[in-house]
Design a binder for these strands. Structure first.
Lengths: 267, 267
DNA sequence: GATTTCACTCGCACACTGTACGATAGCCTC
DNA sequence: GAGGCTATCGTACAGTGTGCGAGTGAAATC
């Protein structure tokens, strides 16, 4: 069968004899450029210039730009640390993992577009996955539920953090503080919400509060919801006799055309 | 104070007298191109060709490519429908909203990179937000919690769906079925997981199952967790005397440097 | 020691991108 | 007819990723 996943990690790297330029330096330089100036700033020409080498020399060590990004991405995965299961409770491990990712994303805002899109099969990504699955195994999840829990946790963190990153990049571009930018945006927002008075009122209220703590609370809120839900599922599994206490059926038939809406049921 | 949010929606559009080319057609053509061939296929030259007009004619109706994408994005937001609060329970509304987004994202895979990154203040985005907030208001959430609930829900859906979209794009490129691609990827995966035997074993197991239903179950799993968590929070608020029944403190101090990890506490 | 081989560097060129600019053309009002 | 406005579009510029082939130096082979 043909191999359909092409990745830096699938092809063996070129034998190194005495390179004046190496993958390590290339990846480090790329990371610095990306962190400092963002995704658009990384061009092969600029990278070559920064390395003091010819532009196309890079292509000896790396097949193309995508592969380079795979390498840098795995470097970031290396910063997603999972506490060992002996060290703390699963809930603390998950929480700390989530906050850790959040911080790492703040350090490397440009990755957000690649996570989940670029294959994550580098050594660091693997180590992370292994630790995360172990955490949920320790918690009491079995089989696929371990993966589901891990994937849901990461999905949530990436999903909430993405808008925060774009907010921060706006801060950088304008040089304003969060609250200044917030204030400067309000009129636009209120005008946009002209047709929805409740929204407009709500936005007017926002002007008065500290955006950064509101965002932090937002993160906390969703994370707690999700962890509570996980915990409830564990407890339910432990004592299967306890009924759910909800009226409506909770699961759309999982086998039908993947992703169909469950349809509207009257409550 | 200077205006810091620049968007198509903030500047009034050019007065239309008798254009042979209009925003509506441009946006529609762009959407078709994007849906059919993906983000990379949308260049101003190709768009002009498709419209049978000069490339730079487009710039009369739209300031630049980013603004064009804002317009197309809002069109997609128009497909994120929220059931009215009279129509069903909040839980059903949220579920149906989540599945609806998922389906819309499958129709327009390219948007995933823009959501949360490009300002969503178009009329459709506003209508959606208004409906979503109303749903959570109806559920019993108050103040910022309404926004937190809405934002968490969207964050989760975008987060889980992103990898699915990249999977589907891979299917399109290779022309394989999900299960064929899955099988063809396994050796690579197992090799990548060589250092983590539990992971390798797990991947080997995956070979035997239907990937699409596994993914659908994954979506369901996280959504249920999150909604259960929301519901628990509502019940807790309704009867504040009932304690949580968990040992460890649940909230890192929210006021400190936004996003700090809660630190490791022994369990 | 001479020759060949191979790891590695790099200049050039190609096809492509977004878009600024200025030249047109048709219409409306004076 | 003159001038101004809406609208279209050709050309040009600076930038992109990268294929190709020529060049360099050191190690391996004869």
């Amino acid at each position: 069968m043909k191999e359909h996943l092409s990745s830096v990690w699938t092809r063996e790297r070129r034998a190194a004899k005495s390179p004046t330029l190496g993958r390590a330096q290339i990846v480090r330089a790329a990371m610095e450029l990306l962190d400092a100036e963002g995704l658009d700033a990384l061009s092969m020409r600029r990278l070559g210039a920064r390395l003091g080498s010819g532009t196309t020399s890079i292509y000896w060590h790396v097949a193309n730009k995508d592969e380079l990004l795979e390498l840098v991405l795995d470097e970031v995965y290396g910063e997603f640390t999972v506490l060992s299961v002996q060290e703390t409770t699963w809930r603390n491990a998950a929480t700390s993992f989530a906050y850790g990712i959040r911080q790492a994303l703040f350090r490397h805002p440009w990755v957000i577009g690649f996570i989940g899109t670029t294959p994550a099969i580098g050594p660091n990504a693997m180590r992370m996955m292994s630790g995360l699955v172990a955490t949920f195994d320790h918690a009491g999840f079995r089989g696929l539920d371990q993966d589901y829990a891990a994937s849901t946790l990461m999905a949530y963190v990436f999903g909430v953090t993405a808008p925060e990153l774009s907010w921060r990049s706006m801060l950088d571009r304008t040089g304003l503080t969060s609250n200044e930018l917030n204030a400067s945006i309000q009129p636009t927002l209120e005008k946009a919400a002209a047709d929805h008075p409740e929204l407009a009122a709500r936005y007017a209220e926002f002007r008065r509060m500290d955006v950064d703590t509101a965002r932090a609370l937002n993160f906390e809120f969703g994370l707690t919801c999700f962890l509570d839900g996980l915990e409830a599922r564990l407890n339910r599994a432990a004592s299967p006799l306890a009924s759910r206490g909800r009226a409506e059926p909770d699961t759309p038939a999982a086998g039908d055309e993947a992703g169909n809406a469950p349809g509207r049921r009257r409550g």
